[in-house]
Amino acid sequence: MTAAWDFLTTAANWSGTDGIWTRFTEHLFYTLLSVVIAALVALPLGAVIGHTGRGVAAIAGVANALRALPTLGLLTVLTLWSFGLLTGQLARLGPSIVVLVVLAVPPILSNTYAGIAAVDPAARDAARGMGMTGSQVLLRVELPVAMPLVLSGVRSAYLQVVATATIAAVVGLGGFGRYVVDGLAQQLYGKMVAGALLVALMAVIGDRLIALVGRFLVSPGLSGRRVREKAQEAEAGFAAVPPT
C-alpha cells in the first residue's frame, strides 16, 4: 500500500508516455469510444424492440450467453485472429474495441427495451388515442419515460467497459491496465496497486458523473419513489453483473 502511495506521489510518474495522464487519456478514449458506439447500436435497436415487442426472446438469450462468456478468452482469441489479418495500431486496438462494444451493448439494449416495455399501457394507449403517430409515441412518451432505465443501462455499460479495458492491457492496449500488467511482470506491487486504485477511482467517479447528468435528462415526475422501485426491479434483471 505504501508502495502504491509512493508511486502515485512521485511526480515523474504523472508525465511521459507511460505517465498517469497519458494512461488516463488512453483509458478514457477506449471507454468513451466503446460506450458511444454501443449506445448508437443499442439505443435504436432497443427502442424498436420495445416499441414493437418483437425480438424479446432473442435479447434475453444473447444477454445470458454474453454473461457466461469469459471476457479474457474473447479478448485473446480476437486479438490473435486480428494479428493474422491486420497490422499496426488497428490490429491491437480493433479487437479490443470490438470486445468492449460487445460487452456494452447488452446492458443498454436490454434496459432500453425493458424501460419501454415498462411504460404504463394506459399512457401508451392515451398517446395513440390523442393522435400521436408511432414515432411521436416513441420519442415523446416511451423514450422519456424509459430514460431512468436507459441511463442505468449506460452506467452499467460504462462500468463494464472501464473494467474490461484494464484487462485489455494483456493484449497490448494502453490505459491503466498497463500498470497492473507491467507491475506484475516487473514484480512492482506498488505499481499494480496504484493502477488498480486508479481504475476503481475512474469507475466510481464516472458512474457518479453519469448519474449526475441523468438528473437533467430525467423528468422530475419520474424520479418519485414509485418509479424508482420499478427501475430497480428491471435493473436487477440485467445490470446486476459485476464488471469483469
Binding site: 472501464v162 493502477g195 469507475a203 459485476p242
Partner: peptide
Amino acid sequence: LYTIPSLALFVV
C-alpha cells in the same frame, strides 16, 4: 462495491 473492477480488487 459493484463499481470496483474485479482485476483491481484481485490486486488490492
